[in-house]
Design a protein around this nucleic acid. Structure first.
Lengths: 219, 219
DNA sequence: TCAACTAATATTGTATACAAAAATAGATAT
DNA sequence: ATATCTATTTTTGTATACAATATTAGTTGA
């Protein structure tokens, strides 16, 4: 713990919020957290300040902190921005990906084929993450990747419900194929468009997505 | 000060950094700030934590806080993302602007014509801000606007040098005209492209921009 | 039984105190 | 004169103490 207690707290709380261990709306009691992590309230509060600024929690004056609840309007707006950012990753990847990276995209996609055939949802999920992270690397813009990741994390709690159903996997796989093709062909516009709609559609239609949201997650 | 001392501190320091009163690299002494604002170190530190999370300052463990210095690579990346976000604002404005908003865009642009003719840089700057803010409103995505504004603010200190020269004003005015036309025609793709390159070009070419940067602002 | 007021309790926000690490200055040696 | 080591001083990070506000519980009255 050479980098300070509050930094560690930020990290831990972030993780708990992103993984859903702490659900939107949960109260974050300073005393409780202090006891839990064996520190005083001071570093706890400093951690909460940072999480507040990054949007993961909401800090209401004199009324304590809660894990951020996102209302429907804000959520749609955030999805809109995230899909644009992911599209941008695709566009830049089409422009800048190395041959190595193109090769890796193909390889991961091939493995996905197996996961699809064997209906291995777990494996497909992992390969899906790997594919998107390869695109992140290929876009050569660390700031963009960081912004995209931050936003993904803020929305993570709300995307938990949308598990990949069998049908959606087939569609996802097909979309991946076209995305990789566009990137390989250095077709920036197409890669942009395909990735943008891929992200938007990852949760099926918005209507489906909204329907699957537990009501208590909406404020 | 019913919303807490630290909130006020965040606001004040943000302002000082954005306006350039506090320059990148300036050290932020906790004691000094505490004295300056007549508070203890506690709310000062809490404010610094938030500014750190938002990227305006950098907090090195055990070595204090400084106004964020952005290296060239990160700056280029941030400009790339900002222009994409502004382009997105244009795209959404083309899709969603009300007739009122279209009317306002035309009006502001007309006034700009006068500023160009009379070489009134001050007036042109103000109208430029008004035009872009009208587009922000028209895109109907508060989250997007907030993200864009935050990024603008982070880059503000580095855009100070690039004043609008006479020649650039003419070009800017012409670009505005095409952007408004695209939005009015509901041409999303064109509005996107035009605004994206408009932002990228706002600082002349990147070479010019980099050349005008004081060396001490780069880390 | 329920509503409204009041007292007790708990929680947040700020100030102060103290421990640990870094920066600074001074002394010594080459 | 310069460099290096040591002692002093600052400055950061955390804990604790206290004041102000919000929450809760209990009581009274209808």
């Amino acid at each position: 713990m050479t980098k300070g207690r509050h930094a560690e707290l930020v990290h831990q709380l972030e993780r708990q919020i992103i993984t859903g261990e702490l659900k939107p709306g949960s109260r974050l009691d300073e005393m409780a957290l202090a006891k839990q992590f064996n520190v005083s309230r001071t570093p706890v509060r400093e951690a909460l300040m940072q999480l507040n600024a990054s949007g993961l929690i909401q800090l209401r004056p004199r009324r304590g902190a809660v894990v951020a609840k996102i209302d429907l309007k804000a959520m749609l707006e955030m999805f809109e921005v995230m899909s644009e950012l992911e599209g941008m990753c695709g566009r830049l990847a089409a422009k800048r990906a190395s041959d190595n990276e193109l090769e890796k995209l193909k390889n991961v996609h091939s493995k996905s084929q197996i996961a699809v055939d064997t209906h291995d949802l777990e494996l497909y999920y992992e390969l899906n993450v790997e594919l998107h992270e390869t695109i992140y690397l290929a876009c050569r813009n660390d700031f963009l990747v960081q912004q995209t990741t931050t936003l993904r994390n803020r929305l993570a709690a709300y995307r938990r419900g949308q598990l990949l159903s069998g049908n959606r996997i087939n569609q996802s796989y097909a979309e991946h194929g076209k995305i990789i093709e566009a990137i390989t062909n250095r077709d920036e516009k197409l890669a942009n468009e395909l990735l943008r709609s891929h992200i938007m559609m990852q949760s099926g239609t918005f209507n489906d997505f909204i329907a699957t949201l537990p009501k208590d997650l909406l404020e």
